[in-house]
Design a protein around this nucleic acid. Structure first.
Length: 256
DNA sequence: ATGTCTAAAGTATTTAGA
């Protein structure tokens, strides 16, 4: 079972890129972020023609998340992260697919920091941790996949000083991620590739793709009960090099 | 290391967000 997460950075603008990758990689489950479309303009019909059923939570211009399943209907369980009824940003959706609960998330970027956007980011990650803990206690097999907008450690950022003031690498951001992962959750890519520099995001600016000046921001966290099933994990870098590409590449895991 | 890309607002170009 191949499960992937892909910050698509506008699903309609990059629909051809998405379809090309779906045809090549044939993922069973796909978590999409930054749809940048409202609910009505999500390309559900096109995706169905490709063999994918979907659930989505859209928002005009910004954010937006979706879960696709090949040859199966995702069973929707949530379209928002609990803990703040006043938060209407489309950043979380959750559905069950073939016996695995899938949480698809798009954490706030948090720049500039310090400031209200950074405060919102930290509060959102704390809410995610509370929800993740509640789900884990139910002992269901769960994958939390998405754009966490945190590069967890030094090796998750290319060697540079230019991100020093960025919300993606601040000690508070890393602490929030560390607290979320705790002792239970499996950071699948890191567990299978310890010590390796692996990136999922390259800014459009300053030739960062051409220089491989990337960051690892997209993660798949697994509950311990999926540990024995984790067979492989990686990043589909090729997708980032294509014409009209998103600034993120898909990250994926394979479950036995 | 070299400031990109996109949509919205409003109808040309500026602004904001990532």
């Amino acid at each position: 079972m191949l499960i992937a997460t892909f910050n698509i950075n506008n699903v309609n603008k990059r629909l051809e890129n998405l379809l090309a990758w779906l045809r090549e990689a044939e993922p069973d489950v796909v978590c999409l972020q930054e749809l940048k479309c409202d609910d009505r303009s999500f390309p559900a019909a096109v995706l169905r023609q490709e063999g994918y059923e979907a659930v989505w939570k859209g928002q005009k211009s910004w954010n937006g998340v979706a879960i696709l399943a090949r040859g199966a209907e995702p069973v929707l369980t949530r379209t928002a992260l609990p803990g703040d009824p006043a938060d209407h940003q489309a950043r979380y959706i959750e559905a069950a697919v073939k016996g695995v609960l899938i949480g698809c998330l798009y954490a706030p970027n948090g720049n500039p920091q310090p400031g209200p956007k950074f405060d919102y980011k930290l509060a959102w990650l704390a809410r995610l941790r509370r929800h993740a803990t509640a789900l884990r206690r139910q002992d269901v097999p769960l994958v939390l996949a998405g754009d966490y907008n945190v590069a967890p450690t030094e090796i998750d950022v290319y060697p540079t000083k230019s991100y020093e003031d960025n919300a993606l690498v601040q000690p508070e951001s890393r602490e929030a991620f560390r607290r979320l992962v705790g002792r239970s959750w499996i950071d699948a890519i890191r567990v299978l590739h310890p010590g390796q520099r692996i990136y999922t995001f390259w800014d459009y600016r300053r030739y960062r793709w051409e220089r491989d000046a990337g960051l690892r921001l997209d993660h798949l966290l697994l509950t311990p009960n999926l540990g024995d099933r984790l067979a492989a994990a990686g990043v589909e870098r090729e997708a980032r090099g294509r014409e009209g590409a998103s600034d993120h590449a898909p990250a994926w895991i394979r479950l036995r």
